[in-house]
Amino acid sequence: MVKCGLKLLFVLILMFWIVNGSLCVFAVDESEANARTAIADAEVVVSDCYGAVLDAEKAGANVTELLSVLNEAGMLLSSANLAYETGDFNSTVYFATQSILMLHGFVAEAGISRETAIQQRYWDFMINVVASIVGTLVVICGGFGVWFFLKKKYERAGSVV
């Protein structure tokens, strides 16, 4: 009877150990998986934001402020990667999330900068290129016009005298 009880106790302890151990393993795996997902998400967000900055820059926007925000987010992403390497998955998720939060609305902001730059570029083109070419033609044609006008006037005045 005592032997049977000991066996039962042993089996119960063994079962508890197995279940408890496997739960711990799952918990660690899940935490690591979360950390990895957080880093991957942050990397995608940073890359997307960088793409948006490139587009804004191509349109002629001043991207200095956008880049300083990206630099801060990039440092947070570096910290997340470092925390992941050291096995600190809570900090990994924290830094990666902070990086994502910092870039919230960033693509829209870069889009606005891009649109503004496109409009400025249009007016810059109209004023500095179109108006300049038209103005040059007007000056040259006007010069010829004034010359011929003065010449005619001078000839008329000469014939009267």
Partner: peptide, 27 residues
Amino acid sequence: DLGEHRVLFVAVTGILALLVASPVLSR
């Protein structure tokens, strides 16, 4: 004599044209 002032007239017109064209030329 208007002919005497021809060169001056062309020079002034040319300088003025260059000034107006400078934004395009700078590009």
